[in-house]
């Protein structure tokens, strides 16, 4: 089994985003970390590798800073890591990013399964995983909450998807692209052995040429999304109301009435 996990470096979850007058977004001096949702994908990949054998390769399209995400994944237990970057990749949207990632995965040749986190905590588009599946012509199994069965010999995978209406069990052929969700597992901590390996490892940097990607399909010019205006969302405003009553039961009854009146429940 060769499992690939696609990851992204993101600002720390506690970072505060600011936007200046020219529409430039800044996360301040926040340290860059692995996208927290990707840790679920890495964990699932490691569990499946340990169960079925093979290796896990973590990949990321990004500048030098993306190494932080790759190092974290290696420190968790991934076997190999590859960074894909070219200056022309800067400003890529999900269309362009999925193109580069799909080319890199095709370049590897022997990939059985591709895993994604559910989204990235900075842009929150939820699109790259499905887009990579489409580009690879592979089944797209997004919102996966459980891998029910993986049978490398039969080239099949069965997963449980967490949908708004309920849970859906689906089977697909390999190679497949799986988007994990929170709750699929509990990501492990990095280990000291992993940390030492991650610190010493060489991280190959693949260029667009290496993955066979055309430069006019990446970066801002290769992207479908335009950014006519960027602004910080207005601060949320709301009012808090303390419900006064003699007993907790009475407070709860008043609360229920109010929630019904507001059509919250």
């Amino acid at each position: 089994m060769h499992i690939v996990v696609c990851t992204k470096h993101t600002p720390d979850t506690e970072a505060k985003m600011t936007v200046d007058g020219a529409g430039n977004v800044s996360w301040g001096e926040s340290p860059l970390i692995i996208n927290p949702w990707d840790e679920y994908a890495v964990e699932e990949a490691l569990v499946l590798r340990d169960e079925h054998g093979g290796k896990v390769t973590v990949i990321s399209m990004g500048p030098q800073e993306a190494l932080e995400a790759l190092k974290h994944a290696v420190a968790m237990g991934c076997d190999e890591a590859i960074r894909i970057w070219d200056e022309t990749c800067a400003g890529s949207d999900t269309l362009a990013t999925s193109y580069v990632l799909a080319r890199a995965i095709e370049q590897m040749g022997d990939v059985d399964l591709v895993l994604f986190g559910k989204s990235a905590i900075d842009a929150q588009t939820w699109q790259v995983g499905a887009a990579v599946a489409k580009r690879l012509g592979a089944p797209s199994l997004m919102y996966t909450i459980k891998v029910v069965e993986l049978d490398p010999d039969a080239r099949s995978i069965t997963v449980e998807r967490l949908l708004e209406e309920g849970r859906q069990v689906v089977s697909a052929t390999l190679p497949a692209v799986v988007g994990t969700t929170k709750g699929i597992n509990e990501p492990r901590y990095t280990s000291f052995i992993g940390i030492r390996k991650a610190a010493k490892m060489e991280y190959p940097a693949w260029s667009l040429d290496d993955v066979g990607a055309e430069s006019d399909k990446v970066g801002a010019s290769g992207s479908g999304v335009r950014w006519p205006e960027v602004f910080a969302p207005p601060a949320r405003e709301g009012e808090a109301e303390m419900i006064e009553a003699e007993t907790v039961e009475q407070q709860a009854a008043i609360l229920v009435d109010k929630l019904l009146a507001e059509k919250v429940i």
Binding site: I33, K71, Y189, I195, A198, A199
Partner: peptide, 15 residues
């Protein structure tokens, strides 16, 4: 800090 030291700090912080 070295990469090992940074990752150690991060791991213990997460824990």
């Amino acid at each position: 800090l070295t990469s090992e030291q940074e990752m150690t700090r991060q791991m213990v912080r997460e824990f």
